[in-house]
Nucleic acid binder design. Sequence first.
DNA 1: AAGCATTTTGCAACAAAGTTGCATTCATCG
DNA 2: CGATGAATGCAACTTTGTTGCAAAATGCTT
Lengths: 142, 142
Amino acid sequence: MNKLEKQSDLILKNNGLSVTSSRKKILEVFLSAETALEHQDIEKIVTQYDRVTIYRTLQTFLDKGIIHPIPTTDNSIKYAVCSETCVKTGHHHDNHVHFFCDKCGKTECLDDVAIPSVILPSGYDMHEINMVVNGTCKTCRA
Amino acid sequence: MNKLEKQSDLILKNNGLSVTSSRKKILEVFLSAETALEHQDIEKIVTQYDRVTIYRTLQTFLDKGIIHPIPTTDNSIKYAVCSETCVKTGHHHDNHVHFFCDKCGKTECLDDVAIPSVILPSGYDMHEINMVVNGTCKTCRA
DNA sequence: AAGCATTTTGCAACAAAGTTGCATTCATCG
DNA sequence: CGATGAATGCAACTTTGTTGCAAAATGCTT
Ligand SMILES: [Mn+2]
Ligand SMILES: [Mn+2]
Ligand SMILES: [Zn+2]
Ligand SMILES: [Zn+2]
C-alpha cells in the first residue's frame, strides 16, 4: 500500500466507514485532485463502479464531512476534500474562499484566503458563509 | 395595464426584447416575489406556459442581465430580479450578500449588505464575487 | 481461518430535469 | 393590414438523480 492508499484508508477508518474498494478509490481521486470535482468527473475517472455507487459514496463522504460542496454559478455541484483538520475532527467548517474559472470551469479551494466576516440585519441567524470568486485562473490567463 | 404590468413591459422593451405574454407574466412573477425562485417554482405558478418556454425565458433574462443566478448549497439554481440600476444599465454587477434559509429553503437578496472585498493570491483575475450566507431566516426563527 | 450479521454494491426500473428540431403562432414594423 | 423574423409548443430525446432488492463484500466473533 502506497502513501496515498494509506491516507485514504486511514480517513475512512477514522470516520467509522468500512473500507471498500470503491470508497478507497474515489477518496484517492479526491486526495490527488488539484481542483474540485463533480459527480460526472468522478464517473469518467472511476469507470469500474456503478453510477449509483458514486452517488451514494459522495453522499456518505458529505455526511461524514470528508468532502464539502462548493456552490458555483455554472449550475453544477463540485466537491473537494476538506483540509486535514476538518477531516480529523469530522466537524466541518470550511472558512476559505473558493475560486471558479469562467474560462475552464475549474474550481479550487483557496485555503489561504479566509472569508471576511459580514454583519447581517437583525433577525437572521447565520450558520455558515460561502464565498465564491469567479474569474480567470492562472493557467487560463497565460 | 396596472403598475406591475407597466414595469414588466418597460423592462422588456428597455432590453430590446419583444413583449410576449409569457415573458411578461414570468417577469411579473419575479418582480412581485419576495424571495429568489427556481425553475420549478415558476413552473408551478405559471402553469399556462410550456416547460421549454420557461427554460428559454430564464436563459433570455439571464443573458440580458434582468435576473441573476444565486448559487446555493441545496443544489438548486435560484434566480432573482436585479436591482433597478442593474436592470437599467443591462450591465450586471450584483454586489450584495444572499441569504439561504436551511429550514425553509427560501433565498433572499440582502440588498443592503455589501460583499466585503478580498485579496486573492497573484495570478488570479477576479471578475465577480458571490457570497451566500446559510442560516435560519426571520420567519423560521420565530 | 471460517461463519455470521450487517453493510455495501450493482442492476433494473423509474422519475425528474434539461435539450433540440421543427412546424405553427405571434409580435413588431413598415 | 401584411410581411418578416422571432418566440412558442410539442414531441422526442438525453442526462441526471432516486429507489427497491438480490447478490456480494466487509468486519467481527469464534
Ligand atoms: Mn474548499
Ligand atoms: Mn441578489
Ligand atoms: Zn481556468
Ligand atoms: Zn426560513
